[in-house]
Computed example of a mutant assay.
Amino acid sequence: MMKVGLLGAGRIAGVHAKAITSHPKSTLVAVSDYLPEAAQKLATQYGAEIRTTEEIIADPGIDAVLIATSTDTHCDLIEAATAAGKGVLCEKPVDLSLERARVCQESAARNGKPVMIGFNRRFDPNFGALKTALEAGEIGKAELLSITSFDPAPPPVAYIKVSGGLFRDMMIHDFDMANFLMGTAPVSVLAVASSIVDPQIGAAGDVDTAVVTLTYADGRIAVIKNSRRAVYGYDQRVEVLGSDGLLQAQNMLENTVVKSTTQGVMGAKPTYFFLERYMPAYTAEWTAFVEAVTEGGPVPVSLDDGVAALAMAEAATRSAKSGQSVRLADV
């Protein structure tokens, strides 16, 4: 039985706590948070202890930690936990600073313990099926990838101010998905972005609407579209055009009922947000981590993957500001 410490007790930590305690080969031992009442609530709910982060990392009886704290703490905690001999599953992104993330990458490699980054969308069964079909050559060679990711509503401006920006906070999932599907990183990134959903987001120095074009060494192209507002629900679609056909992963809907009358044809909206859309992916993600730690195999989403996606976010940020394409090698 893998004993786990959960660092952080916010909304996403609750999702992970459920996955940890539901798995037959893992148990939640302790929870920490800078708000003791939040840690106490989550610990009580899942039968764990409340401890400090330092106590959890120092405990030799804890095999792994799940990091669900603020982004600016991720690297310090990854380094401390791996130095203490623990496996790590860390929420994205690795850090807000690419330079700091690369230092962490080197440190964790020296410590030699598994570090997995929480790009849960790789474990979505629909995207997974698309990946399997693509690798099987069912549409020939992939030539054009399109990723759509629209949130139903923007987050509070207070969150925007500490998020690192749309490219690091939101689109970073799509950068990783592009790497996952295309099998490699692009050579250049071109971003166009603006703040048209909420003027307060622009006043905070961020954008809420963006389109990024990725160009690959062999001529393939990927296009990523993000918006902080889609009034009809959480829009999550992937499309790959290949030399022999097309693959599409469509939205998950609230239900599958379609009404057809003389007035027209109407169906349900997409599920509202990520908790409704991606719960199966979070469960599969945790299962993959447990298997990697207990069986000694490689993690399916490595710290290297996390740094690669962060580099693309950095390139997109620079491109949006300059209006010029940015070579990934230059970041």
Rank of each mutant, 00 (worst) to 15 (best):
Asp33Trp: 07
Ala58Asn: 13
Ala39Tyr: 03
Arg327Glu: 11
Ala320Glu: 05
Gly183Tyr: 04
Glu291Pro: 05
Ile224Thr: 04
Gly10Met: 08
Met252Lys: 15
Thr21Asn: 10
Ala178Glu: 05
Ser260Lys: 13
Val240His: 07
Lys92Tyr: 02
Arg228Asp: 13
His16Thr: 00
Ala101Phe: 03
Asp72Leu: 07
Ser97Tyr: 12
Val65Trp: 06
Ala311Phe: 06
Met170His: 14
Phe175Met: 02
Ala311Glu: 07
Met170Pro: 00
Gln200Asp: 13
Val240Ser: 01
Ser227Cys: 04
Met116Asn: 03
His23Glu: 08
Leu66Asp: 13
Ala17Trp: 03
Asn179Gln: 14
Ile117Met: 15
Thr71His: 09
Gly233Tyr: 05
Glu254Met: 12
Gly306Leu: 03
Glu295Cys: 01
Thr317Asp: 12
Thr261Asn: 11
Ile78Phe: 00
Thr184Ser: 14
Ser227Leu: 04
Asp198Leu: 02
Pro152Asn: 11
Pro300Trp: 05
Glu49Arg: 12
Lys25Ile: 05
Val240Ala: 01
Ser260Trp: 09
Leu145Met: 03
Met1Thr: 13
Leu181Asn: 06
Pro36Gln: 10
Glu276Thr: 14
Thr287Gly: 14
Ala13Met: 08
Pro300Glu: 11
Ser194Tyr: 08
Val192Tyr: 03
Ser302Asn: 00
Glu49Cys: 04
Ala316Tyr: 01
Leu241Glu: 12
Asp304Ala: 14
Thr261His: 04
Ser188Tyr: 03
Ser260Asp: 13
Arg237Ala: 11
Leu310Cys: 01
Gly165Ser: 06
Lys3Pro: 02
Gly245Ser: 08
Gln324Thr: 09
Thr73Leu: 13
Pro152Trp: 06
Ser107Val: 15
Val88Tyr: 01
Asp169Asn: 14
Ser149Met: 10
Leu98Ala: 00
Glu143Asp: 11
Ala84Gln: 09
Asp124Val: 03
Val31Ser: 08
Ile117Trp: 03
Gly242Lys: 07
Arg220Ser: 11
Lys18Gln: 13
Lys321Pro: 01
Phe167Thr: 04
Val307Ala: 02
Glu295Gly: 15
Leu28Trp: 07
Lys41His: 13
Gln40Glu: 15
Arg327Phe: 11
Gln236Leu: 12
Ser227Arg: 10
Gly183Gln: 05
Pro114Met: 01
Phe127Ile: 14
Ala210Phe: 04
Arg51Pro: 00
Thr148Asn: 11
Pro199Asp: 09
Ala158Val: 14
Glu37Tyr: 12
Glu49Ala: 12
Leu7Met: 10
Lys141Thr: 15
Ala81Asn: 07
Lys141Arg: 15
Asp198Ser: 08
Lys92Gln: 00
Leu7Thr: 00
Leu77Thr: 10
Ser149His: 15
Lys18Ala: 15
Ala158Gly: 13
Glu49Phe: 09
Ser322Phe: 08
Thr184Val: 12
Ser319Glu: 07
Phe274Cys: 05
Gly264Glu: 06
Ser260Leu: 10
Asn179Ile: 11
Ile160Lys: 03
Asn255Phe: 08
